[in-house]
């Protein structure tokens, strides 16, 4: 796009005016069409067809079966648990993201790059390993296992373990969105507020928050999508107890393994809808966040 625009504003003569009206920095039409065609074919095969097939399989046995699978008690309890764990994990990681970004973007201190790398760490850990490490600490044979058993507390194969594993896998989302945004915005505005006598909370709520709100929301949306959809890590710590420690993705797995495909795809279609809503919000909010960043980096 950028290139097209530039060619139009500067005077570039086509190399061969007689034969074609092709600009020197453009490909022939047939090349362009072929490339678009191949790219779309690839995306159709690997993205669009799988997405459509989720809804097709979900509705194949009729709308009655579809809704029956969703309002069945085990499905409802899975939906509830998914909402609960996201409702705990997302706010905690938002709080952490703000604190980490404030420390990293507004101050200069030693070891900052190491800290940024450590914050990104959960992204590079396999989901299965993310679940396993909590079993090693809270499991019956784990570090705190005997103590927990003595006090009749259950973390692994119970809701607290699921919540912790969810927090781990969604840990970096908000922080990694806010850190570059706040670094780009600098701290002149906050410093001006501080010199004028604003308190820490006033500086944050009246100066910083309005500047970062879209970026914050963007990070929270991504965090939420992963929190609700996490499978591997949660699968290790859940114990798969129907109606009590099953989240929606785990419920999908159980139904699928029981060859109850229509019900599995019905619950899966809810998660697919969540993914689509996430993508819509993401592109709306993402555009606003990008504008914020550009405006603020301009001198």
């Amino acid at each position: 796009m950028a290139c097209e625009h530039a060619t139009m504003s500067t005077v570039t003569l086509p190399l061969d005016v007689g034969r074609s009206r092709l600009r020197a920095t453009q490909e022939p039409t047939w090349v362009r069409r072929t490339l678009i065609g191949v790219a779309l074919a690839f995306l159709t095969l690997f993205l669009f067809v799988p997405l459509i097939s989720v809804f097709y399989e979900a509705l194949r046995k009729g709308v009655g079966v579809y809704f029956a699978s969703i309002v069945e008690p085990d499905a409802l309890s899975a939906i509830k648990l998914t909402l609960i764990s996201a409702a705990i994990a997302v706010p905690l990681n938002v709080l952490f993201g703000i604190a980490a970004a404030w420390a990293i973007a507004k101050f200069e201190f030693r070891g900052k790059n190491l800290l940024i790398t450590l914050i990104d760490l959960p992204f590079s850990v396999s989901p299965v390993v993310s679940g396993l490490i909590y079993v090693l600490i809270f499991g019956l044979q784990g570090w705190l296992g005997p103590w927990l058993a003595e006090h009749d507390l259950k973390v692994i194969f119970a809701v607290p373990g699921i919540v912790m594993a969810t927090i781990f896998v969604t840990f970096p989302f908000v922080a990694r969105e806010l850190i570059p945004l706040m670094q780009a915005q600098g701290s002149e505005e906050e410093e001006a507020a501080a010199v004028l006598g604003a308190s820490g909370w006033q500086i944050f709520s009246r100066v910083t928050l309005p500047n970062i709100k879209w970026g914050l929301l963007y990070g929270a949306i991504l965090c939420n999508a992963r929190a609700m959809g996490e499978f591997g890590a949660v699968s290790v710590v859940s114990g798969h107890i129907r109606g009590s420690t099953n989240t929606m993705p785990l419920h999908v797995e159980i139904l699928y393994n029981e060859y109850n495909f229509a019900a599995a795809f019905a619950v899966a279609s809810l998660l697919a809808l969540l993914a689509l809503v996430t993508l819509v919000l993401k592109s709306v909010v993402g555009d606003r966040a990008a504008t914020d960043k550009e405006q603020d980096t301009k001198p």
């Binding site: 995306l43 993205l47 669009f48 799988p50 997405l51 097939s53 989720v54 399989e57 989901p127 991504l222 999508a225 609700m228 959809g229 996490e230 499978f231 591997g232 929606m248 993705p249 785990l250 999908v252 797995e253 699928y256 599995a264 795809f265 899966a268 998660l271 697919a272 969540l274 993914a275 689509l276 996430t278 993508l279 993401k282």
Partner: peptide, 16 residues
């Protein structure tokens, strides 16, 4: 839609 694999839970992608 290119971001779909980021947003779609892996179990859903798996069964689809």
């Amino acid at each position: 839609l290119v971001d779909l694999p980021f947003a779609l839970p892996t179990a859903v992608a798996g069964i689809a």
